[in-house]
Simulated assay, not measured.
Amino acid sequence: MTIDEAASAIGRTSPDVAVQGLASLLAEWKLNADNVDELRGQVERYIGNSWISAQR
């Protein structure tokens, strides 16, 4: 699975703003100069500061 496929798969799981933001964060990561350790930190901060709705 590529980073684009992962971002797309995450984005399809829910219309929740936090989920869509995480998908965007992943998709945009490959466009900047951050390494994978910086991505991990960004994802941890993003998830740690977000509430994902459990509504289905």
Rank of each mutant, 00 (worst) to 15 (best):
D34W: 14
L39F: 01
A33N: 02
Y46H: 07
N35K: 15
P15S: 12
E38L: 10
A27T: 02
G41I: 02
L31K: 12
S24R: 08
W29P: 04
S14K: 11
E38C: 01
A9M: 04
N49K: 13
A7T: 03
E28K: 14
M1L: 03
M1K: 11
G41P: 01
Q55D: 08
L39V: 00
R45Y: 07
A54N: 12
Q42M: 02
R45I: 07
I47M: 10
R12M: 14
G21P: 00
A54V: 09
L25E: 13
G48D: 05
V17D: 01
T2Q: 07
D34F: 15
D34M: 14
V43S: 06
G21I: 09
A7D: 02
L39M: 07
N49Q: 09
Y46P: 00
N49V: 01
T2E: 15
D37E: 14
L25G: 01
A7R: 13
T2P: 01
L22D: 02
V36W: 09
S14I: 03
V19L: 10
E5G: 00
N49M: 09
T13V: 10
R56F: 15
L22F: 11
E5F: 14
Q20G: 02
P15D: 08
R56Y: 14
L26Q: 11
S53Q: 08
V17M: 12
A18R: 05
T2M: 10
I52A: 09
E28M: 11
G11L: 09
A9V: 03
K30D: 08
S50F: 06
G48M: 04
A23S: 12
E38N: 09
I47V: 12
D34S: 10
D4K: 11
L25Y: 13
A27W: 07
T13K: 12
S24Q: 14
N32L: 06
E38S: 03
D34P: 06
S50D: 01
E28P: 00
S24F: 14
E28T: 10
G21F: 15
L25I: 03
K30S: 13
W51V: 00
E38A: 08
N35W: 06
Q42G: 02
D4R: 11
G11A: 10
I10G: 03
A23R: 09
D34K: 15
T2R: 15
L26R: 11
N32V: 10
E28W: 15
R40G: 01
I10Q: 05
W29Q: 14
T2V: 03
K30T: 13
T2D: 13
D4M: 12
A6F: 13
W29F: 03
N49I: 02
A54R: 13
D16Y: 10
E28Y: 10
